[in-house]
Design a binder for these strands. Structure first.
Length: 855
DNA sequence: AGCACGCCGACT
DNA sequence: GTCGGCGTGCTC
């Protein structure tokens, strides 16, 4: 094949700047550059040979003086371009169709770019894996199939008509039969596979058949990848059949089953730890896969009012994504990255056919990711299990979305685009007209609020309708919870909630000399548990040995801080070093040897505070015979370490597993009878309005690891604040009371989820210039806020809780909006400034809508 | 993001 | 007198 000449001509003959006369239309192309234009892209002329260009196609266009070839996504097609555009260049070429995006993902990207204040091109960069763009691992393969007269009638003039079948050897006959058999089910096949199928040792009989004109070939793109999901399939257990459902599970499955054909809806699945949420997911997925109901969009548009999801003006008309001849629906299952273990994936693989499941996570190689992506896009894999970015899985049609452990803050991306996968999931479900399930034992307060947990009256549909300009026709609906609540209040039969005990560390310290990170109570419980042959989990949400290195002289008061950040350095022990260890900054990674004396007063330095290393040391001292494993970011270098450690623990080869929050999720080991929280205060003392919520979640989640077998589990929580409601209520397994109280506080303070929030962080190596810019921006924000009469509360600029990070001084401005129109007013304010070019997210400016971290 | 234009210091 | 520093602004 020779290159099409017209392409080159279009690209070259452009001296006058006039659009080529042969343009058949114009396309709005979002470029893979950080260009933030209001309409989302640049206009290019569509050359005749690309007359069938569609939204979602990936194209190469000339950009700038040098007409540098630049990649982009077609986000719109128009007949006549905007007259304000001086010059319109033609699209250079279209990329392979395998790298194009389904139209619903284009609509989703537009929403994300608008809502999270991120240039559309960057949003696409995050949506479309680089491996897919580059075509990593793609190889052209020759495939064959039997040539039947129907499939390709071809005149063979040299041989003339062949009424009699040519003579075939036995092997050739076998190959042809195999090809015909295969063709009935699958079609094309690799020559090597066909030879294997026919029992031939080489492909030479295939060549013979090709020469005889009985087989035909084609070139087919295939992605070479060594990811074999079958290897991850869960080991066959004794009970291969799905377990009997509890009544609550059965009700949950029924309700989700009823929702499947009914368009968009949101369901909060609040199921305590061990209540069998995963089984509910599996049943709902099975129901979806076997269903044959038609495509249906939601009649109303409730997503527009949900706490974190507001419609963008770019929301497509329903007809744009409606497709009368829909492919069979698939499902996306989001799981926190940390929980994406072979065990988790194995449960899905064990229940659904190998070929139907695809897995997406950060550990895949580029070629593996590409291969998974393509299987999803081609409709081969209908069950997608993956971490945050799997919400962008290119399923031809989405019929169900599940967000497991929806409260997990790791669903929020901390780089551009700063999206929250849970909220994107809700938006995608709305665009696809399908249900979304948010599952958790400790739902985020956002979900609790929207589902009516805690008895708060959610601002209903009616009220918000009156607020914005782009509202829907008024409804007479009374204010009702926007999300449906499904509860699994009991553990599956045989499992009982553990008993939780709180140990007052202040009291302990009075009664006992010396430094003990493990209280008497916890120590005794560990001893008894060991003697009884039980396993234990110890949680401490802090790495290292000690997090303060300070001068013991109170008059001096020197404390070791990072040279580049405004935080204290953490001591990490390393016996191999002459100083006994290093000090490390957990924010910028700076590291140096542990200093011995105070640089100010010359006293010998002391270390205090606690970390996993120090607990490990104490455990070794107090339980020398116990088999101990430490699991934190320092001890786990690779994903494999993590797996090995977990496997050993699951096998019972480890008595005590000590670790940071990475051990709090998903671990399901029957023999864990004791869980200890070494310090509940680390998360409680965080300068963040969500500190209580995080503490409750952490304790409840880790407590859920205990007593999953026949023995009732026990949990010991150590704290200097034993009376704190978050700790008390977690100990009582009382999520609803906690949520009720916390939502009351949030209502009083106007904080999320009742109010809405965005945060702008400005950073610069020059402190003064940074402050100045922050004040200017705040002023502009105030002006626009007053002019548009939006009523957004503006706080700051003020110094961030971490005032300096990696040599950059940091200022922030907080935007808070209260209901009823809070949902939209922040976005209106940000969009107004963005379109006026006064708010650009760049290296100095980070805009975080619905922030989860406020440091 | 690139890449160019543009206006001020140390060099052949 | 130039080479080149990276500040500012534009790309359909």
């Amino acid at each position: 094949m020779s290159p099409r000449p017209s392409e080159n001509k279009l690209f070259n003959d452009d001296p006058s700047g006039a659009p080529p006369s042969e343009a058949v239309g114009y396309a709005l192309v979002s470029l893979e550059r950080s260009i933030d234009s209001a309409d989302g892209g640049f206009t290019y002329a569509v050359p005749p040979e690309l007359a069938d260009l569609a939204v979602g196609d990936r194209v190469t266009v000339p950009l700038g003086r040098g007409n540098k070839p630049t990649g982009g996504i077609v986000v719109g097609l128009v007949e006549t371009p905007d007259t304000k555009i001086k010059r319109i260049k033609p699209i250079q070429s279209r990329e392979r169709s395998a790298a194009s995006l389904p139209p619903d993902l284009v609509a989703l990207a537009k929403w994300i770019a608008g809502y999270y204040c991120c240039p559309l091109g960057m949003t696409f960069a995050s949506l479309l894996p680089a491996a897919v763009k580059r075509g990593t691992g793609a190889q052209q393969r020759t495939q064959v199939r039997a040539l039947t007269p129907k499939s390709k009638p071809r005149a063979e003039p040299s041989e003339g008509p062949d009424p009699a079948p040519p003579k075939l050897t036995i092997l050739q006959r076998a190959v042809l039969d195999a090809a015909l058999t295969h063709q009935a089910s699958e079609g094309w096949i690799d020559p090597k596979d066909l030879a294997d199928l026919a029992g031939a040792k080489s492909t030479s009989p295939i060549k013979q058949l090709l020469d005889k004109g009985l087989l035909e070939t084609r070139q087919h793109e295939r992605i070479v990848s060594d990811l074999d999901l079958r290897a991850q399939r869960a080991a066959p257990k004794a009970d291969q059949s799905p377990p009997q459902l509890t009544p609550a599970q059965a009700t949950a499955v029924d309700r989700l089953g009823a929702a499947l054909p009914s368009g968009f809806s949101v369901h909060v699945l609040h199921g305590i730890t061990g209540s069998g949420k995963t089984e509910v997911y599996l049943r709902a997925i099975a129901a979806l896969l076997t269903s044959d109901f038609g495509f249906r969009n939601s009649e109303e548009d409730p997503a527009s009012d949900q706490a974190n999801v507001t419609p963008s003006p770019a929301s497509p008309p329903k007809s744009e994504i409606q497709n009368p001849k829909s492919p069979p629906p698939g499902v996306i299952v989001l799981v926190p990255e940390i929980a994406l273990t072979p065990q988790t994936v194995g449960r899905f693989l064990a229940r659904f056919p190998d070929g139907e499941v695809a897995v997406l996570h950060s550990g895949l190689t580029a070629a593996q990711r590409h291969a998974q992506w393509q299987r999803i896009r081609d409709g081969k894999a209908r069950v997608v299990v993956g971490a945050r970015s799997a919400i962008f899985a290119p399923l031809p049609r989405v019929g169900l979305i599940i967000v497991d452990e929806e409260h997990e803050s790791s669903y929020k991306q901390d780089q551009l685009p700063r999206y929250h996968a849970r909220d994107v999931a809700i938006k995608r479900a709305q665009l696809s007209g399908c249900p979304v399930v948010l599952g958790s034992a400790t739902p985020s307060l956002e979900s609790a609020y929207n589902a009516g947990i805690g008895g708060l009256e959610v601002r209903g549909l009616g009220k918000e309708k009156t607020a914005g300009a782009e509202t829907k026709p008024p409804t007479s609906k009374p204010p009702t919870p926007k999300f449906h609540l499904i509860e699994l209040p009991d553990r599956v039969p045989g499992a009982v909630l553990p008993k939780v005990e709180i140990v007052d560390l202040a009291q302990e310290r009075q009664q006992r000399k010396g430094i003990h990170l493990l209280s008497h109570r916890l120590e005794n419980a560990l001893r008894n548990n060991l003697d009884a042959g039980g396993q234990a989990i110890l949680l401490l949400n802090r790495r290292g040995y000690a997090n303060y290195i300070a001068c013991p002289d109170h008059r001096c008061g020197w404390m070791m801080r990072c040279n580049h950040c405004d935080v204290t350095m953490v001591y990490h022990r390393n016996a191999a070093l002459p100083t006994g260890g290093v000090v490390r900054c957990h924010h910028c990674g700076a590291e140096q040897l542990l200093p011995q004396i105070c640089p100010e007063s010359g006293h010998k330095l002391t270390v205090f505070g606690l970390g996993t290393q120090r607990v490990e040391e104490e455990l070794v001292r107090k339980f020398p015979e116990a088999r101990l494993a430490r699991m934190d970011a320092d001890a786990m270098r690779t994903a494999k370490d993590y797996q090995t450690t977990l496997d050993a623990f699951a096998r019972g080869d480890t008595d005590i597993l000590l670790g940071t929050q990475m051990i709090a999720k998903g671990l399901d080991v029957a023999n864990v009878r004791l869980v200890g929280v070494v310090s509940a205060d680390t998360s409680l003392n965080f300068p963040d309005f969500r500190a209580s919520e995080r503490t409750f979640q952490l304790i409840a989640q880790v407590a859920g690891r205990a007593g999953r077998g026949e023995h009732r589990g026990s949990v010991i929580v150590q704290s200097f604040n034993p009376d704190d409601p978050a700790i008390q209520l977690a100990a009582q397994h009382d999520y609803v009371t906690f949520a009720t109280q916390e939502l009351k506080t949030r209502t009083e303070t106007g904080l999320p989820p009742v109010g809405r929030m965005a945060r702008i962080v400005l950073r610069d190596t020059a402190d003064l210039a940074n402050k100045k810019r922050a004040h200017q921006l705040a002023q502009v924000l105030h002006q626009a806020n007053d002019q548009l009469n939006l009523g957004v509360r503006l706080r700051g600029p003020s110094v961030c809780p971490i005032a300096r990070l990696a040599d950059h001084h940091r200022q922030h401005i907080e935007l808070i909006a209260s209901p009823p129109q809070g949902a939209t007013s922040i976005q209106k304010l940000l969009t107004a400034l963005r379109n006026a070019g006064q708010l650009i997210s760049d290296t100095h400016t980070a805009i975080d809508v619905d922030p989860v971290a406020l440091l």
